[in-house]
């Protein structure tokens, strides 16, 4: 579908991409291959959303964004457990904004 992300969604996508890229890099350095491939796909999709105000969003792109939110849920909960509440709240805000992309795709793709 044709998709015009909001500025907030673009910024959230850019920040989420950085977080996941950092995680992918760390995992690569510690021997992961399969997980790195998955995360790299999510990063690519997020960066594409961040870079364009008008793009074609596929079902796979939507799932990439949703999967990225699930990874970020782990970041959020881990930081919360370690008492980094402010940063956990910021990641929660990213998740909420990215979920808006998923919701818009689901609503637009519905018959």
């Amino acid at each position: 579908m044709k998709f015009q992300p909001t500025r907030e969604q673009q910024e959230a996508s850019a920040q989420a991409a950085e977080l996941l890229a950092g995680q992918a890099d760390g995992l690569r350095r510690t021997g992961s291959v399969t997980t790195v491939k998955g995360l790299t796909d999510y990063v690519g999709t997020l960066r594409r959303i961040a870079a364009s105000s008008d793009l074609n969003l596929t079902a796979k792109d939507k799932v990439d964004v949703e999967q990225a939110t699930f990874v970020l849920e782990g970041h959020r909960d881990g930081l919360l457990t370690a008492d980094f509440k402010d940063r956990a709240d910021k990641i929660e805000s990213l998740i909420r904004t990215l979920n808006g992309i998923v919701e818009r795709y689901n609503a637009s793709a519905a018959r």
């Binding site: 799932v63 793709a109 018959r111």
Partner: peptide
């Protein structure tokens, strides 16, 4: 919703997923 509009879900369950499909 990994499928477009969750159509297989609505088709499989029919009225058991609500009177208005989708």
């Amino acid at each position: 919703y990994h499928t477009t509009g969750a159509e297989p879900y609505f088709t499989f369950f029919g009225a058991q997923a609500g009177a208005v499909s989708g």
